[in-house]
Amino acid sequence: MKSRVAYFGVFTALALIFGYIETLIPISFGIPGVKLGLANLIIVIALYRMKLSEAFLLSVVRVLLSGFLFGNYFSILYSLAGGLLSLTVMAVMKRQEGFSIAGVSIAGGVFHNVGQLIIAALVVETFSVTYYIPVLLIAGLLTGLLIGILAGGMLKRLAELSF
């Protein structure tokens, strides 16, 4: 039981650090707001290895911590909306038969962007953000696929570990 707490701490730290490392990688996709979402790699792994409630808690804790450390009120709001919607969709997808980790992760990536776009539309109070939908869908698809491939590889190597 104690080790669960320890693992949760390690996962939180990993998610935080991955989010930070990402800001150091000088790769720009040329589109504002589009990033790889390395921290989601940890969330996907948590989804497959931890209880669902723990994965949700991890997601919230990560967003709040990285928001307080590096971001501001708005970045927390956006990340929370994206992260929670993404995780909810991934949890539902995981229960369906026939989706691989990559598929679940793709849905997660896409809905992460959709969640943020919804908040953006509410904050700006126009629907002119809708022109961004196609861009964000495709971006979510690609980043989700990449994260899914990474998560699949990592889960295989973590097979003997159980938390």
Partner: peptide, 16 residues
């Protein structure tokens, strides 16, 4: 690593 199932492809196509 890249073992996409039938439903994964379907999802990708739907998103596109």
């Amino acid at each position: 690593f890249l073992k996409l199932k039938k439903k994964d492809w379907l999802l990708i196509i739907i998103i596109i």
